[in-house]
């Protein structure tokens, strides 16, 4: 009669859970971004670190300010705001005034996320909404690139511009490989693209380390591999075809390794919230993004198109999801066979 009689819970089945959870998935992305982030700071110096911090601070502050108190703890705790801040920061030029980075992150979280109802409800990648806003708002500051490889402790003067004031630039500014290609038909050597000692956004220059991070996420099954695969495939094919015409268009390798291609394809387009759920949808999303990137880079007005390509495909994601629902088991012809169950 000494049986233990617990107060029984009525937690419904399934009792078992796969080990992964959402905050951890976010943390994984953090880890995967770490090498490229550190490389960015290494190349661009202390200033880059400050820009990243300003962006993350803006994201956290906005998330905190606009999330209802009841959900605040969870919203901050799921690491997603901080990740948005980091991702935005990585797509900013190293000499961007800190107030702009802060503002961009505020817009990213405010208009990109909170307004939609918070994590999981936004349909556009928040970091990219913030960046698109910044590029549209401060086109010059967002395309002026502090050179890499200077003394670590030296902070570009533009960084410290007072809020709402124009930054002052020192004469030294560099060009990105994409800018060189677009406006001066000048290539950049592959080793430099892989290593990352080029002009560009803080987190986008180091191809090899970004690939390493992507590999980590792939092994952890944290993203849908079809999306980057689709992007690489479409971009490489399109640019290969273009370069075959012999009109001096960049080849596939340059296309894949330059600009925000790797950062975008591996870490932004794969944001599960804003990309299609279905496997076929993921392919379409990836291929569409890859195509648009090259279209904008080669035929458009901007040297880089990754951000716009992803945002445009984000916009199409509800449609893609809708028309790529997998065929339900036991339903041969897809949906049209419809309502025979009861």
């Amino acid at each position: 009669m000494s049986q233990h009689e617990p107060h029984l819970l009525l937690q419904p089945a399934p009792m078992l859970r796969q080990g992964m959870n959402t905050p951890r998935a976010m943390l994984d992305v953090w880890l995967a971004l770490l090498p490229a982030t550190l490389a960015g700071i290494w190349f661009f110096g202390l200033g880059a670190l400050l820009v990243l911090l300003a962006s993350m601070a803006g994201a956290l502050a906005t998330e905190w300010a606009f999330t209802p108190a009841s959900r605040r703890r969870a919203a901050i705790g799921d690491n997603s705001a901080l990740l948005t801040g980091l991702l935005l920061g990585l797509t900013l030029p190293p000499g961007l005034p800190l107030w702009m980075a802060f503002l961009g992150a505020a817009v990213a979280i405010g208009i990109g996320k909170v307004i939609w109802g918070g994590l999981g409800h936004n349909l556009f990648n928040p970091a990219l909404v913030g960046r698109a806003f910044l590029l549209g708002t401060f086109p010059i500051a967002m395309t002026t690139w502090a050179p890499s490889g200077g003394p670590f402790w030296e902070i570009p003067p533009s960084l410290l511009a007072l809020p709402f004031q124009s930054p002052a630039y020192d004469a030294l500014s560099s060009a990105t490989p994409l800018g060189l290609m677009k406006f001066e038909q000048q290539g950049t050597a592959l080793p430099e693209l892989l290593l990352g000692n080029t002009g560009g956004c803080i987190g986008e220059t180091s191809g090899a380390l970004l690939l390493l991070g992507g590999l980590f996420l792939l092994l952890r099954r944290d993203f849908d591999w079809r999306i980057p695969a689709g992007i690489f495939l479409a971009a490489a094919t399109f640019s290969a075809l273009l370069s075959l015409t012999g009109d001096g268009y960049p080849g596939p390798l340059f296309t894949l390794l330059s600009g925000g291609m790797l950062l975008g394809a591996l870490f932004m387009a794969t944001d599960p919230v804003t990309s299609p759920l279905t496997p076929r949808g993921a392919w379409i999303f990836g291929l569409g993004t890859g195509f648009l990137v090259v279209l904008i880079r080669v035929f458009g007005g901007f040297p880089e198109g990754m951000m716009y390509a992803i945002l445009l495909m984000n916009a199409a994601t509800p449609l893609i999801d809708r028309y790529t629902q997998p065929r339900v088991f036991g339903r041969g012809g897809g949906r049209d066979r419809g309502e025979q169950t009861s």
Binding site: A132, L295, G300, G301, G305, Y308, L312, N314
Partner: peptide
Amino acid sequence: MAFMGFAGLF
């Protein structure tokens, strides 16, 4: 904003 990416196309 996303459509701004098409600026200058062709």
